[in-house]
Amino acid sequence: MIRRKDTRRMAKRPTKPTKSVEPRRAGRGPSPEKTAQTRRVIIDAALGEFLENGYADTTMDGVARRAGVAKGTSYRYFPAKEALFEAVVREKIAGALIDADPANRRPDEPVSTFIRRTMLVSIREIERNGRAAIARLVLVEGARFPEMTEIYRRAMFEPLLKQIRDLAATARARGELRRPELEDYPHLLIAPIWFAIIHNGLLDRAHPLDIGDLFEAHLDLVFDA
């Protein structure tokens, strides 16, 4: 005798309808303006810390306290002190390179006039805006912290030399320079600046040189030679 299967056991259980889960909306972060402002505040604080304490004794904690932000916030923008120093150099120090870009020279403007209109104006402020102090910091602590020197060389020194070399080539082509040395050695133009930075900060603080006047006198010698 064949027994019938219990169809009740084989019946499929009704499936429960699945509920659609809406993705959780991410919370709104700070606006781009607020982000940029926070970044500027941290960089300003870092400049103050570097100038007051030097590179070795500047800490991310100190920068955060000075900026009035949480330590985690400063790390969110700058993962290490090296990155923070590079931001200071690029935005507070190397920013002067923008005006002196040879592309900004007027078509008929003499190169020496362009240098006076751009570089000389910036150089006259070099002691007041922290640029000279950062240069001294690199001179004093760069041997212990080679990453400082590399950052300064890459962000400030080499771009400036390229600008001077390009300007010297233009001046030679226009007949403003009779000799080729400035094109071959663009360091010649900024040598008095570095001498004055060393003199004012290390050699004779009691009798500082006017870096702007020294550079202007040197500029006259270079273009009159």
Score class of each variant (00 low, 15 high):
2 I>R: 13
3 R>L: 14
4 R>K: 11
12 K>C: 02
13 R>I: 12
14 P>D: 09
15 T>M: 09
15 T>N: 08
17 P>C: 00
20 S>T: 13
21 V>P: 00
21 V>M: 11
21 V>F: 05
22 E>F: 12
26 A>I: 07
27 G>D: 11
29 G>K: 06
30 P>W: 06
30 P>T: 06
32 P>N: 08
32 P>T: 09
33 E>V: 14
38 T>N: 12
38 T>G: 00
40 R>C: 02
41 V>Q: 14
43 I>C: 08
45 A>E: 11
46 A>W: 05
46 A>F: 06
52 E>S: 14
54 G>W: 09
55 Y>G: 00
57 D>M: 08
61 D>Q: 13
63 V>C: 10
64 A>I: 06
65 R>K: 12
67 A>P: 04
68 G>M: 09
69 V>R: 15
70 A>S: 14
73 T>D: 03
73 T>K: 09
76 R>G: 12
77 Y>K: 01
82 E>D: 15
83 A>V: 01
83 A>Y: 09
83 A>K: 13
86 E>L: 11
86 E>I: 03
86 E>R: 15
87 A>H: 05
93 I>M: 09
95 G>W: 05
96 A>C: 09
97 L>C: 00
102 P>D: 09
106 R>I: 01
106 R>V: 04
107 P>L: 06
109 E>V: 04
110 P>I: 08
112 S>T: 14
114 F>V: 07
114 F>I: 07
116 R>H: 07
118 T>Q: 01
118 T>I: 05
125 E>Y: 03
126 I>N: 01
126 I>D: 02
127 E>Y: 04
129 N>R: 13
131 R>T: 13
131 R>E: 10
134 I>M: 14
135 A>G: 08
135 A>F: 08
135 A>M: 12
136 R>P: 03
140 V>D: 14
141 E>T: 03
141 E>M: 01
142 G>Y: 05
143 A>N: 05
143 A>L: 11
144 R>H: 10
144 R>I: 00
145 F>W: 15
146 P>F: 03
148 M>A: 00
149 T>L: 11
150 E>G: 03
151 I>C: 10
153 R>E: 10
155 A>V: 15
155 A>D: 08
159 P>I: 05
162 K>N: 08
163 Q>S: 11
167 L>I: 10
168 A>M: 09
169 A>M: 08
173 A>H: 10
174 R>Q: 11
179 R>Y: 13
179 R>H: 12
180 P>D: 11
180 P>R: 11
181 E>V: 13
182 L>E: 06
183 E>M: 13
184 D>W: 11
184 D>V: 11
187 H>P: 00
190 I>P: 05
193 I>R: 03
193 I>W: 04
195 F>V: 11
196 A>W: 04
196 A>Y: 04
196 A>S: 15
199 H>P: 02
199 H>G: 02
200 N>V: 08
201 G>D: 14
202 L>W: 01
203 L>G: 01
205 R>F: 01
207 H>S: 15
209 L>E: 03
209 L>N: 06
210 D>K: 08
212 G>N: 07
212 G>F: 03
215 F>N: 02
218 H>I: 06
220 D>C: 02
221 L>K: 12
222 V>K: 04
224 D>C: 07
